[in-house]
Amino acid sequence: MFFHMYRNFVEEKLGSRYVESRRMDLAKSYEESSPATPVFFILSPGVDPLEDIETLAKPLICFWCKDHSTLGFTIASGRFHNFSLGQGQEMVAEEALEKAARHGHWVLQVSNIHLVAKWLGTLEKLLEQYSEESHPDFHVFISAELAPTPEEHIIPQGILQNSIKITSEPPTGMLANLHAALYSFDQDTLELCTREREFKSILFSLCYFHACVAGRLKFGPQGWNGRYPLGARDLAVCITVLCSYLETHTKV
């Protein structure tokens, strides 16, 4: 009740743009980052920055190449490392950091560092070391969940101070959820299928359905019996299946 009162007050006095959810501008944060300045994602439930990082990395241009080809920071090209920490992945992370810093043209994501509290001191030292002894194209993307209380905060101060912090909360409301779903697709996705009219129509329906499902999460067990963080990657899989179905079936 009080939340809606505050929201209405801010919207009335300052304008709707101060209460509407906006898609984070990761490209701008990337421009401000460097080998010495990682990008740190403070995650809310249901938020996964991996797809945004992959979308950002793919079209980056190699300006020192004669043909200005793309650098192709993708997992398939071996220029992008993505893994979640825990279950003995610390050594894998250290090896990937060393390799990425040495060769450049690598983008590394270290996920869920809140799960490896004892290793965070090592990570802090490695980031400090590679900030001075690395290829200029070396970038680090880190993510961790928000600590429930100040007492449970375990991220070293050095990592936080040297990083660009990004917080991204799930959109609230049907309209915000629908916008978030639609904004997760670029023009290339819209032109992915040869049956453009059917594809765009069903894509919008899937986005609308996704927004409804995501919106019910805020009602807890009254919305869904089990809490599943339906995210953009789930929606992307649906769109891939849709495109495949339309291309192989003449009748819808």
Rank of each mutant, 00 (worst) to 15 (best):
P59G: 05
T55V: 13
G72H: 10
I42M: 12
L56V: 05
F83M: 10
S77E: 11
T74Y: 00
G46L: 04
G88A: 08
A57R: 01
P59E: 07
I61G: 03
C62I: 08
L71R: 01
H68T: 11
D67M: 14
F80K: 00
L43T: 01
G88I: 13
F73M: 12
P49C: 04
I53S: 06
G46T: 00
S44C: 07
P49Y: 05
L71C: 05
C65M: 10
K58Q: 13
M91R: 15
S69F: 07
A76Q: 13
P49G: 05
D67W: 12
F41N: 00
M91S: 14
C62A: 07
V47Q: 04
I75T: 13
S69R: 15
L85C: 09
S69V: 10
D67H: 13
C65P: 02
D48P: 07
L85R: 01
S84W: 09
S84N: 14
W64M: 11
F80I: 02
E90I: 00
T74M: 03
V47E: 02
P45I: 01
N82C: 14
V92S: 13
V47Y: 00
P59N: 04
T55K: 15
L71M: 08
G72M: 11
T70Q: 09
L50C: 09
K66M: 09
L50P: 00
F63P: 00
M91K: 14
G86L: 01
F63S: 15
F63K: 11
L50T: 15
L85F: 00
L85K: 02
R79L: 08
G78I: 07
G78L: 09
T70I: 14
E90K: 06
D67L: 12
P59V: 08
K58M: 15
Q89Y: 08
S84Q: 15
F80W: 02
P45E: 03
D48G: 03
D52R: 05
I75P: 01
T74V: 04
L50E: 12
C62R: 09
V92M: 14
F40P: 00
F80Y: 14
F41K: 01
G78C: 04
A57S: 13
